[in-house]
Design a protein around this nucleic acid. Structure first.
Length: 801
RNA sequence: GCGGACGUGGCGGAACGGCAUACGCAACGGAUUUAAAAUCCGUCGGGGAAACCUUAUGGGUUCAAAUCCCAUCGUCCGCACCA
């Protein structure tokens, strides 16, 4: 009799063993082929580990443990994305230094992660708030600044009233702050910006060279939002600049019956004196400014606007005068901030024209423009369009673009939805921006030998009421001298957003203690790119896009050897609460990993997270299901009682090898649930037999070990084998998979009517003959003509009538 | 509105175009136990008298459809006045 399975003894034992033998540290030698597996480093929040973290971590832990057994030198690192608002808010509320809060949270997370037995290389731990780390975040920023990719601009920003901080577009969700849910308003602020738009095309194009799951690629492409069209110049009487518009439908130029400019468009100021209804226009502008972006788009149904009375534009195709309106359905931030309105063929223009009684002209036949705008570009012929008449839409687009170019009225133009990245935050707990403002020299970068520029100590971390950074109070720190001319100068008080440190952390892991470079050339050459990166879909248009941008920049300046940071990107589905809703404190459906580990053990927890459903799908938590996984491990444990004597055998070789194959292949495809199901089925088979050989159990432990490493090591040690992590991944024998006899289903006209056993060496002809003669089949086809017999895999279909 | 994913037992879910419901949960029966828990063994989608029917619904392609195509309904996710 063996004692009962007790993870609370086994798990700490093996965790200590792994830590002492340092067996999961990446090898210094670069002889072996490398494998770099990466999970998104956690933000050490006060809430502690979420059940979502282990889902991603276990998935790649399985891959990394398997890779080591396959002979790879594996890097599976861990670190902390520790700058950020929740920590700072907690610090403010409790009057503790954010660095102390961070330290406590990191300690808590570390303990939680270690209890789960991930094979992280803890010797390479990084922390974005460590000055020796953010020295290099600052270094990269200065490089961007040098190359003109960081610039300061007066821009309307999304300002969160709760956090008192500017947000990137990506951080505004449903019109409110992603973090605190507070109202977001528009404020004009001078902000540091990064020119991610300069990389827009390459960020699209190079998706072709990486292996990302398709929905990630699609979301990134949509976010960057490339559109092809033309920029067209409309003349305005008495305004020599004219009014430029961007359109993807230059073919509809003859149908442009009016123009619309956004409320912020400079033409209003330029022509102020000639706009007869200027007070109404000013009033409209003021009303638009008071609305947030969210409110503006909330009112989609009701188009509003005011004509610029006295202003007339000329349609360059027809030569006709057309009115110019101002309306907030046109955005200053996209294209030129002005549009040509073609109500016949654009839904928004159609609504606007209907609302204000503007003329609607059909220029593409095929729809009913009285009912709705007709905007199909694949099916329609040009009408009422002079020299374009009779052409198909696509033909007309290229023809008129050429015509515009020849007349000097326009040009082919590509536009992107992607905006430059707002890189300033008016907060304390972030990397200081290493620039100094000098009255004489402007913005001057800190010399590299003065990095890191360390955060000053403050009494209060709260931003000022006007939203300026708490660093404005660090008088001594701010006042410095210009590195260029020596005159008194002031430091930048904005800090970097949380995304800075996470944009390059995977590079630092390759050489985490290097004080001379962000990482050595040699380390980067060997380890990058990351071979496999798993993370959340929510980072697709944030972290993942930002880090691709930074990486491309570092590639351009010769710092990294590859144009893309991550060779492969996968994503896990979210774990929902037992009630099928998103886990949250307020819903009271949060599952704490510690509780599950306490009750069932880390191995059962890991097993359940991998077994609960398809890895890429969202899935509700079930504590009963988790207990079922514990039952399975109990059954594996008791296999020790069924071990046969020396020299005895079972007839399980075929099933065992089938399982090795299934599990090996399913791990690679992240089909963890079916891999585990296959092992459960195998164990059920051994229970049916009531016996197992020592070697068979050993092999089962090898393939189970990536999921349940503690138990696998423990039983394996008791069997007298060397530690699993030092052993090779088992190979399956294809020959063993072939069984002597297989069961075939016999179908008649596609319906299963009978089954029969046949020798697996039987020929097609033999199978067909046997099927027709089968005792249950023969009477059914008697008197009928057999038209065809299809024998495929394990089905024979007889077509007869 | 646009883009994406998806719809299979009481539940989570399996199923290279080839025997639908693997594996697990829940439920039920039995063994063991003074009893319970644990464990072991077993049963287990629905409808129909039956032939059969049944993978959201209706069509189609095919020898063969949960799987491919078209339409409809529904759910989830992302983007959203992007010209």
């Amino acid at each position: 009799m063996i004692e009962r399975y007790d993870p609370s003894i086994i798990e700490p034992k093996w965790q200590a063993h792994w830590e002492q033998t340092r067996c999961f540290e990446a090898e210094a030698s670069h002889e072996k082929p490398k494998f770099y597996g990466l999970i998104e480093f956690p933000y050490p929040s006060g809430m502690g580990l979420h059940v979502g973290h282990p889902r991603s971590n276990t998935a790649l832990d399985i891959i990394c443990r398997k890779r080591r057994m396959e002979g790879f030198n594996v890097l599976y690192p861990i670190g902390w994305d520790a700058f950020g608002l929740p920590t700072e808010n907690f610090a403010i509320k409790n009057k503790i230094h954010p660095a102390v809060v961070t330290k406590n949270n990191v300690a808590h997370f570390t303990a939680q992660l270690k209890r789960l037995g991930f094979s992280f290389d803890w010797s390479r731990e990084v922390n974005t708030t460590d000055p020796s780390y953010y020295k290099w975040s600052q270094w990269i920023f200065l490089k961007l600044f040098e190359r003109g990719l960081a610039y300061k601009a007066e821009i309307p920003i999304n300002f969160c009233m709760g956090c008192k901080v500017g947000l990137a577009n990506e951080e505004v969700v449903d019109g409110v702050c992603e973090r605190c849910g507070g109202a977001v308003v528009r404020k004009i602020k001078s902000q540091w910006m990064l020119k991610i738009t300069e990389y827009a095309q390459r960020l699209i194009d190079d998706l072709d060279m990486v292996d990302y799951i398709e929905k990630v690629k699609i979301q990134q492409r949509n976010w960057i939002g490339r559109s092809d069209g033309a920029e067209v110049l409309f003349e305005i009487e008495g305004y020599p600049d004219g009014l430029k518009v961007f359109t993807t439908r230059p073919d509809t130029l003859f149908g442009a019956t009016y123009m619309v400019v956004s409320p912020e468009h400079p033409i209003v100021n330029a022509l102020e004196g000639r706009i007869k209804n200027i007070s109404a226009v000013r009033e409209y502008q003021a009303a638009a400014a008071r609305k947030s972006d969210f409110e503006r788009s909330e009112l989609v149904k009701d188009k509003t606007g005011v004509p610029l009375e006295g202003i007339t534009a000329i349609n360059p195709a027809t030569g006709e005068p057309i009115p110019v309106w101002i309306s907030d359905y046109v955005l200053m931030g996209y294209g030129t901030g002005a549009i040509m309105a073609v109500p016949g063929h654009d839904a928004r223009d159609w609504e606007f024209a209907k609302a204000f009684g503007l003329p609607i002209v059909e220029v593409v036949a095929g729809g009913n423009i009285e009912e709705a705008a007709f905007s199909d570009i694949n099916d329609g012929q040009m009408v009422n369009s002079g020299f374009l008449n009779g052409m198909q839409v696509k033909e007309a687009i290229s023809f008129i673009t050429q015509w515009l170019v020849e007349k000097g009225l326009g040009e082919h133009k590509v536009n992107y939805k992607l905006r430059d990245w707002v890189f300033s935050r008016q907060r304390y707990w972030g990397e200081p921006i290493p620039l100094v403002y000098c009255e004489h020299c402007g913005w001057v970068p800190l010399p590299y030998d003065q990095l890191p520029l360390v955060l000053p100590e403050l009494e209060e971390y709260l931003p000022a009421e006007d939203g300026s950074s708490p660093l404005t109070r660090a008088t001594e720190w701010i006042n410095t001298s210009c590195p260029k001319c020596g005159a008194p100068a002031k430091r930048e008080t904005d800090t970097m957003p949380q995304w800075a440190g996470s944009s390059w952390y995977f590079l630092r892991y390759t050489d985490p203690n290097n004080d001379n470079e962000l990482a050595s050339k040699e380390a980067l050459e060997y380890w990058t790119p990351v071979d496999w990166y798993n993370g959340g879909m929510e980072h697709t248009t944030l972290h993942l896009l930002y880090s691709r941008f930074w990486h491309k920049f570092l590639y351009d300046i010769g710092v990294v050897p590859t144009p893309e940071p991550y060779q492969k990107r996968t994503s896990h589905g979210m774990i929902l609460g037992e009630n099928n809703e998103k886990m949250s404190k307020s819903r009271g459906n949060v599952i704490n990993p510690d509780d599950i580990v306490n009750e069932l053990g880390a191995d059962s927890f890991r097993l359940y997270e991998m077994f609960m459903g398809a890895f890429d799908q969202p899935i509700p938590w079930s504590t009963m299901g988790a207990r079922g996984c514990r039952r399975f491990l109990d059954r594996v444990w008791r296999l020790q009682e069924m071990i046969k004597g020396e020299g005895e055998t079972t007839d399980m070789r075929g099933k065992l090898h089938g399982c090795i194959k299934k599990v090996s292949e399913d791990y690679e495809r992240m089909k963890y649930n079916t891999a585990i199901a296959a092992m459960m089925a195998l164990v059920n088979d051994f229970y049916s037999k009531g016996s197992i050989t020592k070697e068979e159990l050993h092999t089962l432990l090898l393939i189970l070990s990536p999921v349940a490493p503690h138990m696998a090591e423990e039983i394996n040690e008791r069997l007298g084998y060397a530690p699993i992590h030092t052993l090779a991944w088992p190979k399956w024998d294809e020959a063993a998979l072939v069984e002597d006899e297989v069961e075939l289903a016999i179908q008649l006209n596609g319906k299963v009517r009978a089954r029969m056993m046949v020798s697996s060496s039987a020929t097609k002809e033999e199978i067909e003959a046997a099927a027709v003669k089968h005792e249950e089949i023969a009477p059914l086809i008697e008197g009928k003509t057999v038209r065809k017999i299809i024998a495929v895999r394990n089905v024979v279909n007889i077509v007869a009538n």
